[in-house]
Structures are given as structure tokens and as C-alpha cells.
Simulated assay, not measured.
Amino acid sequence: MSWLSNVRNKIASMTKKETPDNLWHKCKKCEAMVFLKEYEENLHICPRCDHHGRIGPMLRFEQIMDENSWKIIPFTAVKEDPLKFKDQKKYTDRLKAARQKTEEQDALITVFGTIEEQPCVVGVQDFAFMGGSMGLAVGQAFVDGANRALEEQCPYIIFTAAGGARMQEGILSLMQMPKTTVAISMLREAGLPFIVVLTDPTTGGVTASYAMLGDIQISEPSALIGFAGQRVIENTIREKLPDNFQTAEYLLEHGMIDRVVHRKEMRHELARTMDYLMAWKSAA
């Protein structure tokens, strides 16, 4: 090996050690390369175009809950593979892979804690867990969260992010739609607020059930929100839809949601909303 080749190999080796693969984040919207540390410190929002990246439950709880105030509500066991489903892989294998990837039990995690010293139950769907799909476990976790809110007499906040119902559980996944609706009715009867925060993306059976039943409907900027896909709708009605169709801003303009709130303002907005909606309790 020549002296020049030896020097080149050493430089390449040093470069690889000093520039790890996770040093940069590429924005999915503007494709700008941003320092990962800068991106994380900015709450996973692109500092160039303000695109709100997708985040998981633990990061969400850290961002909005009071420090050291929240505890995870334990999962109630459900039948994991009721239909013994198999496509290219066994459903049980897909669950195992999703759990290894996210380090979560299923696609919805609920906690009890405080936001600006106001007690609340908060649920966060994880799109990284099988597309945030709704099955028996998600439906049960939602109901467990509602029951805890009833027990504590506090608001229930849900952050949605889902591709819809979980196909591997067939009609049993669709039955979670009325099941969660009944839980929301119980909250309403008790006079407890149900606040929905729509995040990117919220679609399918989740949109058709609890995602659109909030007393207050909030969304993060530019979130994709809808039931069927835009292309499916266009092919059905044979009309061209607006480019911003099914975005949070479009839904706000057409009266389907109440607010579009920046992630940096979400914590205070939720605290203020809870304060308004729970005024009856302090006055009683």
C-alpha cells in the first residue's frame, strides 16, 4: 500500500468516527439538513420550515406534562391474536416487532398527571406502532383512560395519530369505535371535558370515532386529518379536490376543528382550556 493510500484510509476512518449517521435530521417537508440536537431542542420541529415531526408518547408526555407528575396507567390484558391472523407474517410476529421497535406494549399509552398543576388523564397514540392502528388493546387503553378520568374527576385529553382500525383484528377492531364512543358519553354525563388533539396523521376508523368527538378539537399545524384518502375520494366523486384538502388548516376554515395550535404553545393551551371547562367544579 502506497503512502498516499495509507493517509487516505486514515482520514476516511477519522471522518467516519467523527460524523456519526445520526448527527443530522432531514426534514420531510423542506428536505433541509438540520443538526439533530437543534431539531430535538426545537421540540422536533424543523427550524427552517416549521414542519412538525411525528413524536412518540414518551416525548409527548415530557413536553406537555409537569415534570415528575405523570404515571402510566397499567394496560388491561386483552386477547392478542383473536383471529389467529396471518398474511405475509403472523400477527403475533408483527406485534413482537412493533414492541421491540417502540419499546411500548401497544399503540396507545395513557397516563395520569398534571399540566400546569391541573390534574388530567392524557393518552397518546404512537404512529410508529403499526401505524397507530386501533385494535382491542387500543380500545381498552382508551376506556381505561376514561375510567381513570371518571375516578379522578378530571379532563381526558387524547393525542391521535393513526392509520385507522387494525386489519389483523377484523370486525373486532371496528367494534372499538362504539366502545370508545360509550366511554366518551360517560365522561359527558359526568360533566368532564374530553379534549382531542389531532396530530399527523389521523385517519380511518379513529377519525370516524373518538378523534372527532371532542368537546374541543385542537390540531397541530399541517396535520393530515381525514377518513378515506384524497385519491379515493376524487375517484369516487370524480372531482379534483383542493391541494390542502384534509389538512388541519382546511378543516379549521370549514368548521370541523376549533383551533390549530403550535407545539410550543400546546402545553399552555391545554392548561387554559381545562381551566375554562372545569370552572363549574371550582364554583360548586
Rank of each mutant, 00 (worst) to 15 (best):
L4V: 13
S5I: 06
I11L: 12
T15K: 13
K17D: 05
W24F: 10
E31N: 14
A32M: 02
A32N: 11
V34I: 15
L36F: 13
L36D: 11
E38P: 02
Y39H: 06
E40A: 11
H51V: 06
R54L: 13
R54G: 05
E62G: 00
W70E: 00
W70V: 07
I72S: 04
L83D: 09
K86V: 13
D87K: 12
K89T: 11
K90V: 02
T92D: 10
R94C: 12
A98R: 00
E103L: 12
E103T: 12
D106P: 08
D106Y: 11
D106G: 15
P119C: 08
V124G: 00
Q125M: 15
D126K: 09
G145R: 04
N147M: 10
E151R: 10
C154T: 13
P155I: 05
I157T: 01
I158Y: 02
G164P: 04
Q168V: 04
G170N: 10
V182W: 04
G204Y: 08
V206I: 14
A211C: 05
L213P: 07
I218F: 15
E234V: 08
N235R: 11
I237Y: 10
R238E: 13
K240M: 01
L251I: 05
L251D: 08
L252W: 02
M256R: 12
M256N: 01
H262M: 12
R263L: 12
R263S: 05
M266W: 09
L277H: 06
M278S: 05
K281F: 06
